[in-house]
């Protein structure tokens, strides 16, 4: 399970696992493709199940590799996707600033996280599609104060115009980094399990990110 980086290009100090959640159609997959490949698709296929991508970048002077799981947004799919919250250090909870219902549903997504994710997961609220100014239905201030109340960080983005996408990821990764680097790593701690960012050092050993292998978790409905 433990392994080292695959040559110089693959070296990193930390490996973080992050999930993208939120209603269908809010732009999760395009935020991901914008962030990892600098691509955007006006008509992209809806996500079925889960997708996965990675990127390595500098955060607070450290090289961080982030593994991002993009999930199908439709409620019915949570039977499959919620297994992927386990072990995630961060969650990007996306809504569409032009669709009020996607913002109203944020509460349900937070509940999903409470039920399935690790309790100390860092959650960032993202209002996407700010380029559609004339269609805006959720005011920035409303989302901002909601985020404050819930203790989430908050940012608005446009995957289409590539506005704030990089910044959103930088913010959540820094936040995760600050928490991780403060926490002393002691071997007496319970095994970090599938969690991403664990170890610091010259040779990088990380456990593979995974979804739990315990069938019971995901398969009883």
């Amino acid at each position: 399970m433990a392994r080292r980086g695959l040559g110089p290009a693959e070296e990193y100090d930390y490996l973080f696992k992050v999930v993208l959640i939120g209603d269908s159609g809010v732009g999760k997959s395009n935020l991901l493709s914008r962030f990892t490949r600098n691509e955007f698709f006006l008509d992209s296929k809806s996500t079925i199940g889960v997708e996965f991508a990675t990127r390595t970048l500098k955060v607070e002077g450290r090289t961080i590799k982030v593994q991002i799981w993009d999930t199908a947004g439709q409620e019915r799919y949570r039977a499959i996707t919620s297994a992927y919250y386990r072990g995630a250090l961060g969650a990007l909870l996306v809504y569409d600033v032009t669709k009020a219902t996607t913002f109203e549903n944020v509460n349900r997504w937070l509940k999903e996280l409470r039920d399935h994710a690790d309790s100390n997961i860092v959650v960032m609220l993202i209002g996407n599609k700010t380029d559609l100014k004339h269609l805006r239905a959720v005011a920035t201030e409303d989302a901002q104060s909601f985020a404050e109340k819930e203790g989430l960080s908050f940012i608005e983005t446009s995957a289409l115009e590539a506005t704030n996408v990089e910044k959103a990821f930088q913010m959540i990764l820094s936040e995760i980094y600050r928490i991780i680097s403060k926490k002393p790593l002691s071997s007496s701690e319970p095994a970090p399990g599938p969690t991403g960012g664990i170890k610091e050092g010259k040779t990088i050993e990380v456990s593979a990110t995974n979804v739990d292998n315990t069938k019971k978790q995901c398969c009883s409905t």
Partner: peptide, 13 residues
């Protein structure tokens, strides 16, 4: 299983 790949990652769709 060593790499912690399970079919939901690639075969759901």
């Amino acid at each position: 299983s060593e790499e912690m790949i399970n079919p939901s990652m690639y075969a759901s769709q």
